[in-house]
Structures are given as structure tokens and as C-alpha cells.
Design a protein around this nucleic acid. Sequence first.
DNA 1: CAGTGGTCTAGACCACCTC
DNA 2: AGGTGGTCTAGACCACTGT
Lengths: 242, 242
Amino acid sequence: MNINKYNQIYQVLSGEIIEGVYQNQENLPSEHALVERFSVSRETVRKALNMLRENGFIQKVKGKGSVVIYDHTMDFTVSHLTSFKEIQEMKSIRYETNVVELAVYDAEDVPKVQKALGLYPKDKIWKLVRQRIHDSKTHIIDTDFFLHELMPGLNEEVAKQSTYQYIEERLGLSIAYAYKEITFEPMTAAELDLFGPVTPQYAATVKSVVYLNEAKPFQYNVSKHLASEFKFTDFSRRFTGE
Amino acid sequence: MNINKYNQIYQVLSGEIIEGVYQNQENLPSEHALVERFSVSRETVRKALNMLRENGFIQKVKGKGSVVIYDHTMDFTVSHLTSFKEIQEMKSIRYETNVVELAVYDAEDVPKVQKALGLYPKDKIWKLVRQRIHDSKTHIIDTDFFLHELMPGLNEEVAKQSTYQYIEERLGLSIAYAYKEITFEPMTAAELDLFGPVTPQYAATVKSVVYLNEAKPFQYNVSKHLASEFKFTDFSRRFTGE
DNA sequence: CAGTGGTCTAGACCACCTC
DNA sequence: AGGTGGTCTAGACCACTGT
């Protein structure tokens, strides 16, 4: 799918690590060996290895080699901007999605969103509220605000499926990065109504602002999770860089 | 301090962005111009730009240039493995640190830690419990487990200062990466005792396993925050890679 | 068209590790 | 000494953007 060489090499190697061709704590073949195997230059191999490193598959040790640090028991790492649908498939839990609201507002009616996305007062935005239900219990309430001009054709059918898929595959837009914030907040009356009787009456709250490729803010999302079930996992490095 | 060129260039450019030499939404000089300015090759400039991109300073746009996306109003991003002391300095809040416990255990006495760090039953570990106090109120309780063999000289004085600084500056060890997990949990009786009367009686719980350069697990940390005050912020990209 | 970033190469020199 | 990864270069070709 991706046309460049280092990405293909990354796909191959990460796949082999996941399949166990290279086990945890083992060394990957040396860069020189990978150069031979893939018939590319060393810098190209190194780009693929850097991707593996950034995504928590390997750790490079000077003078020694690239050690696999991928552990199958590790929880799936949420931090790389994955959509609800993708997470759901990873965890292989089946949620039912119920669209609570889908409507168009003026940006000025929702000041937080107007400010976060840098909109003019009369810019139109979609508001989309969805319940994620499993075993006839609501686990997550997602509230999304999208720029209307970028997806005028949004409808309930799309909203029940994956909005990210729609954005990327149908509209050809490319999601680039996001700011996320996790807090613990009391549930509002409306939220309690959707969640039903739960303890505590607090929600793990993930707010995010999502940007497209050209640094264009595009989506404001508030995701409320039952606090007792919420878990966020992350892999991070102390120093970034080559 | 860092000897390689791309790191120096990164330091210079990130500093200039923070100082406002390049404003939000503006373009950075072209790669060609930066090649001239720093008298290096283009690939070296690109490595510095990639660091800026990964740390949320810029977004590169095909055929156009590198747009600054750094906003001063943005909260400090915690996700890159920063120590408590570093966070405290960023936020310029003065906490007092109180050492509740500092003792040596056998790994088998703390099975969770033994498993997370992959230890033998009789391996020795430090247990260190610290309260972070501000305005005579406890805001954070940090519980740390360290490999004893790597820092036999740990003492209460060091524990009151920064353990990371001690590890990196005194011991010359290099912290590489960590796995983190955030959950919201009811406070235990012992925690309630340290926190005092608070509402809600929930703690934002950050558990992490920290690794040194050679993929050696080294520290297990549980950080309990008052849920009502807790905020975790993160910057993430959908696709990594060059 | 010229300017921009994206990819890739072949080779060089270095620092570190192991034997 | 020989293997490993880390840094850096000079140049090439491409795809995309703007005019």
C-alpha cells in the first residue's frame, strides 16, 4: 500500500516480530544484513529501524545491535491516534453504536469548540453524539464536532460506522496529528441518563483536537469512559531523534 | 551539550520557535536555506526537522514548507518520559517531598514488580514511597521500586531530591524508554490516610516500567494523583516514520 | 516554471562492543 | 581486529505547490 521502501521494510519486519520470527530479547539481523536482504542502501534500512524503534518494537544498542523489546502480553498502546473502530478491532470487543444526536451548529454556539478549532462565529460544525454499548450497557459516550465544510455529506449511516474511515477513504483527507488530554470529571445529568446507574459518577474524559495534513484543525472530540473500565497505555522514549 | 549537528540544530530551532522568532502558523525557512545557514548537508537538516515534527513544533506540508504549530497556550506535554522534578519546574509549582518509606525487599515479596521487571525471587529491590505536598496538602503519592544493584548508594537525601538526576548524572546510567498505564482507582485506606479527606476518593494512577539504554528494566513506578486535579496531555501523530 | 519537501544512494569516518 | 550502530556528506530523481 505504501510506496516507499523503508515503509515496506517496516511492514515486513514489524510483521515478523509480531509473528515471532524474531523473539523478544533477540537481536534483529544487523543493518548490513538487512541491506543485503532488501537490496537497499543502509540509510533506507535505518529509516525502517527508526520506525520500529519509535513504535516500541526494538531498542538499538551501540556496538551490539537491535534488540526486540516487543512483548505479546503487552497491552495495545492507544497513544498513536487510533480511532474507536480500530481500538475495538484490536481488543476484539463488539460494541453497538447508537447515534444520540447529529446536527449542525454555528461555531459561536459552542465556544470551546470555536476556540479549539480557531473558527469564525458563523462557521458551521457538525455535532455528533454516540453511545458505545456492550451487553446492553453504555461504556463510552463520544461527542464529536467536525468542520461542516469538509464533510457536508455526513449522515447517520456513516456515523454508525467509522467516521475516520469515511474521512480518509471517502473524502481522501489525511489525518496528521492530535492533542489529547485525559481528566477525571463528574458526570453531567445528561451523561448519567445515558450511562444509567453507575459508580462512581465520574467519567474518564479524553478530549482531543485533531488536525489534518496541512495543519488544519478539523475535529474536536470528547470521549467519556466509565472510570472503572478505563485504561490508557502508552510507550514513550526519553529522547527522540535519530 | 549534545555533540551531533542535527541535535544542535534542533536545539537552536526549537528555541527560536519558543522565543517567537518563528510564530505559530508561519513557515520555517526552507531546507535549502537551513542547509546554508548551518553549513550542513540536507539530510542533517532533515533530521533536525524530524525531531521538531515529532515533538509537535512543526508540520511539514508537501511542496509548501514546514509550518510552525507550536502554541504557547498549549499545556506542557507530559508524554515524553519526564521526571517529577522536571514537570514541577515546568509548572513552576513548589512541592515539598516527604519520604514515607525507603527500604530493601526481595523481589519475590512484591510479585507485581518481580514480574514487571523480570527479576529472580532473591533479587534485591529498593522500595521508596514519597508524598508530594503543596499548601500542606498531599497531591501525589509516588511509590518506586528500583533495582538495588544499580544504585546501592540510594539514601533519603537523594530520595528527597531527584532520583532521575541521580541516576543519570551520578550513576551515568541512561534512561531510554517506558511503558505507562493510566487508570482511575478508588483510594485504599492507606492512601486515604496520606491524602486526608478528599472528594472524590479516587486516585488517578499512573503505573510505569522504565528501561535503561540496553533494554534493561530498571524501575517500577506507581504515581497516585488526586483525581480531581489530574490532567495528562499528549501530542501524537497518526503515522510515524520519516 | 521554480521552489518546496520526500526518497534513495554509495561511500566515508567514528564510537562502541566482543573476541 | 572485525562487527555493530551513529553521524554526515554530495548528489540524484521524484511529486507536489505556487506563479
